[in-house]
Amino acid sequence: MKIVINVTVNQKNYELAVEPNMTLVDMLREELRLTGTKKGCGLGECGACTILLDGQPVSSCVMLAVEAHNRKIVTIEGLETEKGLHPIQQAFVEKGAIQCGFCTSGMVLSAKALLDDHPHPDEQDIRKAISGNLCRCTGYQKIVEAVQSVSEGEQTS
């Protein structure tokens, strides 16, 4: 039986009826068509489905949609504004931090949560913050450099 939830996604309020066994990632992708959140493993082990839940990055594939009731969610689609890409997104573009792009949404959101809390992290802080987000393409280095460039104020938008 479906359950009605109220949830804020990217500052927009939704009232949705969801099956209890629907995961949050499926709700975002299938109900709201926000397909920027990716499904890489289904078991909370790769970070591709990272979203911000009340500001904190979590794996949306191991969270039930019904549990998002009265919570605030930000997905990758919530970062871009009418002015353009978010500085973190811009840094990822400019520093070559994106190859296949499948981990990018999660990486960017984990980086955002870090920078929101610690505007000037050191390299180890950055690596720790993205340690739940697997990337098979880049070797992480250009991702770390991108995050560093934002914290050092190289990026503005």
């Binding site: 909370g44 970070g47 990272t50 904190q56 990055p57 979590v58 969270m63 949560a113 739940g132 987000n133």
Partner: peptide
Amino acid sequence: LGSPLIRNM
């Protein structure tokens, strides 16, 4: 424990 994503949940 796990990773930051796991620790947040």
